[in-house]
Amino acid sequence: MSSRSRAVLGSTGVRARQWLWALPLLGCSGCNQTIEIYQVELNGAVQATAGSPATGPVSVELFHASSGEGELAHPLEFIEQFQIETPGEFNHTLNYPTTGGDGLVIYAWQDRDGDGVLCALGREVELAGLVEVTPFPVHEVEIDLLMDQPCAGPEAMFPP
């Protein structure tokens, strides 16, 4: 199971709509930071290549296609990961952080042996696939992703 971490700084308070009363006073010029989220409804299908098992959890990982500036610009900045129970149709709501990068890449791999690791040593060969969503940003995305690359991390497939 992908467990890439992402350092996020900021307050950890409970959502507090009662503080809206302060908005007129502050004009929110006094806000600590403004977090801009673009909501995306992901729909589609994740399929394994013909002849592969039809069952087994699928790990889906979402990335910015590019992030950073200058020499630090790089592809595949991790956003989040979720799981679907079996290859097939899915839908998922993504809160896309607009300041983290640009574009959207969807990567998925099928955890046939349920060990949480893509192609762990001595275990089954597992398949992965990747699609880049274009055009983006759009609020509704429809994808068709085929997992046909054995033991391939996302970096093996993107940039192509």
Binding site: S3, R4, G153
Partner: peptide
């Protein structure tokens, strides 16, 4: 460090 891979294929030298 933030953003690093933690899965065994990226960290375990057996790979």
């Amino acid at each position: 460090f933030p953003g690093t891979s933690r899965e065994p294929p990226y960290t375990d030298p057996a790979y």
